[in-house]
Amino acid sequence: MLSILLVSTAFAMPQFPGLIETDLGMPCTPTCDLCHSTAGGSGVPTQAFGIAMKDRGLSVMDSTVTPALDAMGADMVDSNGDGTIDTEELAQGLNPNPGGTDYCPVGSGITGPSYGCLSTVPSPAAGFAGLAVGLLAMLRRRRRS
């Protein structure tokens, strides 16, 4: 399948929670209500954390996530005013927004969904090399017969 995008406009960025999780070493993936009004939300950020990230350069680009988080840390943003800055709260699995429900507090045993039942793979080359060898073997067998 070959796909070329012609036109699109902004919508929710479903990859951002995973990027934030990885960047800050969170124990789980935060839900969309870290930035939006609901857990499955979309549209313009309405939560204090999301607004603060947007003010620090977050856009639709993946590459803006890390600089915005760095700026949040450097500016020591504390959205809920509890004395712990937002990036530190997220690293502990807490919700930095005022009145927000914590995601997966360290030590609580709560973890986010993880995917894949096998270990990580270094590259797809090994798998497809195996596939190619198999097909060549079948072709060779056919020629012999």
Partner: peptide
């Protein structure tokens, strides 16, 4: 079915590469 995608782990992936390298 078996295949490979360039993106991170998701419901359909067998592996859990979060970084580069894609997933089975």
């Amino acid at each position: 079915s078996v295949g490979w995608i360039s993106s991170g782990p998701a419901r359909e992936t067998l592996t859990s590469n979060a970084g580069k390298g894609g997933n089975l």
